[in-house]
Simulated scan of single mutants.
Amino acid sequence: MSPTPAAPGIPAEFSVAADSVRRIDVRQELTVDEIPAPTGLAPYAVALAADVAPVRHGRDSDLGTGRFVLLYDPAGSDEWGGRFRVVCFAQAPLETDIGLDPFLADVTWSWLIDALDERGADYVAASGTATKVISTGFGELARQGDGAQIELRASWTPTGFDMKAHVSAWGDLLCMLAGIPPLPDGVRLLTQRRAPRD
C-alpha cells in the first residue's frame, strides 16, 4: 500500500508520519480507531483510541483503554526538542492488592520505556506521570467493594518520521497493563471459555 499523498496545505513530513500512525499492524487484543485529534496543542495532529478486547474474561470485561496523539509543529518547539511530540494515555483496572503495591507506578513507567526500546522506537525527552487510584464504594455502591486502577500519561519526542514503532509500543503497554504479556510474532493467546451465568 502506498502512502497517502499530502493534502494541500499539509506539510509533507507530517503527512508521512500521520500515514505511518494510521497503517500500523494492530495486536489482536486491541480494538483501535482513529478519533478527532485535540485542538490547540499543535498546528497539526492525528489521534488514535484503543480498547483492550476482553479475550480472557468474557465480553462484559473492561480490561483497559488508551489514547495516542501525534503532534506536529513545523516551526519546531524548544520544549519538545523537535517538530513532533507523542502524547499518550493508558488506563487499566487492577486487583486491589496490586493497586496497593508501592512500586506499581515505577513498574508502569518501566513498561513504557521497555516497550519503546523493544520496538526500536527512537526518541528523546520522555516524561510522564503514573497515577494509582484506590476506591471504596459506599451507600448504593457498597456492593461494588474496593477497586483500583493505574493510569499513565506520557509524552516523548520521536526522532524520525516513521511512527509505527511508537504506536506499537503504546499498544504493548496497554496490553501489559491489562495483564496480557507481549508475545512473539505469529503467537496468539488462547481465549478462555467460561460457563454462562445463571
Rank of each mutant, 00 (worst) to 15 (best):
S2C: 02
P3Y: 04
P5I: 10
A7E: 15
G9C: 08
G9L: 02
P11S: 09
P11M: 01
E13Y: 02
S15T: 13
V16D: 07
R22W: 04
V26E: 08
Q28P: 14
L30K: 05
E34P: 11
L41M: 13
L41P: 08
A42H: 03
P43A: 12
P43Q: 09
V46T: 13
A50I: 02
V52T: 12
R56V: 09
H57D: 07
H57N: 10
S61Q: 07
D62A: 15
D62N: 14
L63S: 07
G66Q: 05
V69M: 04
L71D: 04
G76L: 00
G76H: 11
G76Y: 03
D78C: 08
E79I: 09
R83Q: 14
R83M: 07
F84H: 06
R85N: 13
F89D: 15
Q91P: 00
A92T: 06
G99Q: 01
L104I: 02
A105F: 05
A105K: 09
T108W: 03
T108A: 05
W109D: 02
L112A: 07
E118Q: 14
E118G: 14
G120F: 01
G120Q: 02
A121V: 00
A121N: 01
Y123P: 02
V124T: 13
A126V: 10
A126K: 07
T131Y: 01
V133L: 15
S135I: 02
T136D: 12
T136A: 15
G137A: 10
G137I: 07
G137R: 02
F138I: 03
E140P: 12
L141S: 09
R143V: 12
Q144A: 15
G147H: 00
A148E: 01
Q149S: 14
E151M: 11
A154I: 01
S155L: 02
T159G: 08
G160L: 12
D162E: 05
K164D: 03
A165L: 07
V167P: 03
G171I: 02
L173H: 05
L173C: 03
L173V: 06
L174S: 12
L174M: 13
L177D: 05
G186T: 01
V187C: 11
L189N: 06
Q192H: 14
R197K: 15
